[in-house]
Amino acid sequence: MIEVKNINKSFGDKQILHDISVDFKQGEINLIIGASGSGKSVLTKCIVGLHEVDNGSIEYDGRDFTKMNFKARKTIRKEIGMLFQGSALFDSLTVEENVKFPLEMYSQKSEEEILDRVNFCLQRVDLVNINHLYPAELSGGMQKRVGIARAIALNPSYLFCDEPNSGLDPRTGIVIDNLIQEITQEYNITTIAVTHDMNSVMETGENINFIYKGKNWWNGNKEDVLKTDNEELNDFVYSSKIMQKFRNL
């Protein structure tokens, strides 16, 4: 469980996040949705500490992250896995070395056990026999899956996914969504996924947070999201023709 309380964030004199409070529940996929530029990525980066917040607190199961120094944060960071918007695989390392990287950094396991874990994680995301390829030799969907494998290598308690299915075809997108959902339930992880894709909202949305102009505008689940009378949310949800047709059924 992650509790975000009243955080503000500005870059220079441009305020991006306005007094955001939100709870992310364990064992569920918590979605952050919103239009492009609304501040979703900035919010996630604030929560994991890649950006410092101006004020407010962020508690990981009661541990206040904002008040910690680099060393104390390190213990929490070991419990965080993150899938980046562009996968962010280390391009000078092979697939195997990428997944191995956090394990070699932090686990006390032997070389053999590490390799077993790497292969387990890669199998978990349905990637076999690609251990020695480089990220540039993979398709976008495969890169995302390697990114997931790397993110879950250390058995994280918190998993962050920034647009896990952007740039993928709808079908592969759903495969990735389902994969994240399975992993979340299987290991009882607190998962936070950023998306602006209604497909994945309908697929995985349990706890949906709609960010509008840097404010936490609305929250609810996937049933509520279709029936809401919140104007801004409706504009967002029914912006595509398909969704408009769906509403008029």
Partner: peptide, 18 residues
């Protein structure tokens, strides 16, 4: 620079690496 803009540096930071 490439590592920065493709978020590889963020990925290192997330793993608690300076």
């Amino acid at each position: 620079g490439t590592m920065r803009i493709t978020e590889q540096i963020d990925a290192l930071e997330i793993m608690g690496i300076n």
